[in-house]
């Protein structure tokens, strides 16, 4: 266990050191969620006047939850890009050689994804508060919201790690990104589920991200709903993708 933690500590230190000392990595990670937030909230704010839209804390809070979850998922996915780059440059070989316990490599990358997202989430939250976002939930509700996002971040990181470990190329980026993108945008992003119609309503109804989004919106409005289902789904995603990532690591080890 001590070996695993030492390796995780080293790997995450490197990723975070590079992230925080290179504008080329730091700025886009913060800029993209902010762009989505301002674009959705600013450009689509009149959606709150649509009949049937009865979100109690307003459209800013409604969109904030989506942007928070999206930033969490993508902070995880971007970790996979870094792993793929490390395979291409040969740096992963150094990590594999230096790590007595290689599970620590997975843990290190996952922890770094979490810290990266925490940074982005802090900025997005501050901007949302400056934009006078209303919060209906109490401290426990908000803890639930951020915990849910954190779970999604870990699941995203493990998913992308598994892909990167299997394909070991930066060309795998679309494979990591696209399913997450589709899952996120086939959920009720702009309006509540009950206002969606046709095929998108059908897809959103079975999309597991919908439960996470609705639960998150329940937390911020102070009217928690689907809480248990959302956490169960998030935990399931983590468990499933953890197995996926570990098996990916074994395949990378076998491939040399």
């Amino acid at each position: 266990m001590r070996d695993t933690l030492s390796v995780a500590r080293g790997v995450s230190w490197r990723v975070l050191h590079i992230f925080f000392t290179n504008k080329a990595f730091l700025l886009p990670s913060i800029a993209f969620p902010l762009f989505f937030f301002t674009a959705f909230v600013g450009g689509l704010s009149r959606i709150r006047q649509v009949p049937g839209f009865d979100f109690p804390t307003g459209y800013t809070a409604f969109q904030f939850v989506f942007v928070l979850l999206q930033s969490a998922a993508f902070a995880g996915v971007f970790t996979g890009f870094g792993i793929a780059r490390d395979f291409e440059t040969g740096f992963m070989r150094r990590l594999m050689l230096a790590a007595p316990n290689r599970s620590g490599i997975l843990l290190g990358y996952t922890f770094s994804a979490l810290v990266r997202w925490a940074t982005v989430a802090t900025v997005v939250t501050v901007v949302a508060l400056l934009a006078q976002m209303k919060i209906g939930g109490d401290g426990v509700d908000l803890f639930g919201l951020y915990a849910l996002a954190l779970f999604l971040n870990v699941a995203g990181a493990l998913w992308a790690t598994g892909v990167a470990m299997r394909l070991r190329s930066q060309q795998a980026a679309p494979v990591m990104q696209m399913p997450v993108f589709l899952l996120l945008f086939f959920a009720p992003v702009y309006v509540p589920l009950n206002l969606l119609q046709g095929w998108i309503h059908g897809v959103a109804s079975v999309n597991p991200i919908t439960a996470l989004l609705e639960a998150g919106r329940g937390f911020i409005s102070g009217r928690p709903e689907l809480t248990l289902a959302a956490f169960a789904i998030a935990a399931g995603l983590i468990l499933g993708f953890a197995a996926w990532a570990v098996r990916g690591l074994r395949r990378a080890e076998a491939a040399g």
Binding site: T21, G90, F91, R94, L97
Partner: peptide, 16 residues
């Protein structure tokens, strides 16, 4: 891995 050290041809350094 605990007992060995290795300097390999393909183990890159991180330019950052």
């Amino acid at each position: 891995r605990k007992a060995i050290g290795a300097a390999l041809q393909e183990a890159a350094l991180d330019p950052f």
